[in-house]
Simulated assay, not measured.
Amino acid sequence: MLYRKTALRVAAPVAVLALALTGCNGDDKASGSADEKPKAKASAESSPESGGARGTGESATGKVKEGDASVTYELTAQKVELGTEADTKKMVSDPKEAKGLVPAIAYVKYTHKSGAALTETPDANDSTTVWADGQRGTLIIGAAEDAPGCDDSSSIEGWKQGESHVLCETYLVPKGAKDLEVHWSEEDGEPFIWKFAATK
């Protein structure tokens, strides 16, 4: 279900991966990585589809500031895929910091509904977070964006109205988590929330 209320790339190269930002307890941790993604740049306008609940596979609509233009996207969190502790050890610089955690990839499909064609790498996915059993996961930065079914945002050029891309985000969550959520929001807005049962 998707609610509005008050975000695994196992094959990624080890050398560019780091454990970063927002631990599972909600505290921010600096990783020292130069690859840290900036926070989402979204418009302050509220979504035209705010409020209410939506079923699995249903979409939401939100505006994102892409360069100098405001772009409206229709988006749907498709799934969350879980990895293993062995995957985690391959993905972080210090496996001891990630003991008991497994990777979770959020797959979110975005369709450019209105606004100018993009001239830079899209920011649409920057506000995606993954939560497990009510706690925000830990973002993995610098992961490869070529996992099966995921589009590499750095290779998207001239994204224009009518085109869709699946963008993925990787977080670490506790092993054995039962309930997973994908959150996405506009700047200063309350998040849309898609709920998934934890499956491998």
Rank of each mutant, 00 (worst) to 15 (best):
V173M: 02
L82R: 14
A69Q: 15
S33F: 00
D151H: 15
A15C: 09
P38T: 08
L82G: 01
T111A: 03
E97L: 08
G52E: 02
H165W: 10
T138A: 14
P95N: 12
A197T: 12
T111Y: 07
L101Q: 14
K5T: 13
A198P: 07
A42P: 05
E163G: 11
A11F: 09
E187A: 09
P103M: 01
T56I: 04
A60Q: 06
G176Y: 12
S127P: 02
G23Y: 07
P103D: 07
S153G: 04
T170V: 03
H183I: 03
D94Q: 07
T56S: 08
T22L: 09
C24P: 14
F196C: 00
A98P: 07
S59Y: 02
D126G: 05
T72W: 09
D123H: 12
V130F: 12
P38R: 15
S50L: 11
Y107S: 09
T72R: 15
Y171E: 09
N25H: 03
V182K: 02
N25T: 06
S31Y: 09
T6P: 14
E81N: 08
A198I: 00
C168T: 04
E45V: 04
T128F: 04
K113T: 09
T61C: 02
V108E: 08
H165E: 13
Y110N: 04
E163P: 00
K79S: 06
V182W: 00
K63S: 00
A20K: 13
E120W: 00
K113I: 03
C150G: 12
A117C: 11
M1R: 14
L118Q: 11
G62A: 11
H183E: 10
D68T: 11
S164W: 07
T72P: 08
W184R: 15
G137M: 10
D123Y: 07
S164A: 15
D146N: 15
A18S: 14
V166W: 04
G149D: 12
A40W: 06
K5P: 05
T119N: 10
G83F: 07
A30P: 05
G158A: 13
M1D: 07
L8H: 11
D123W: 13
N25Q: 10
A69N: 12
S46M: 10
R136E: 15
W159T: 14
G55I: 04
K200P: 00
P38Y: 02
T119D: 08
T22V: 02
S59N: 07
A69W: 06
S43M: 05
T128Q: 01
E36P: 00
W194L: 02
K41G: 03
A11W: 11
D27V: 03
A12S: 15
V80H: 09
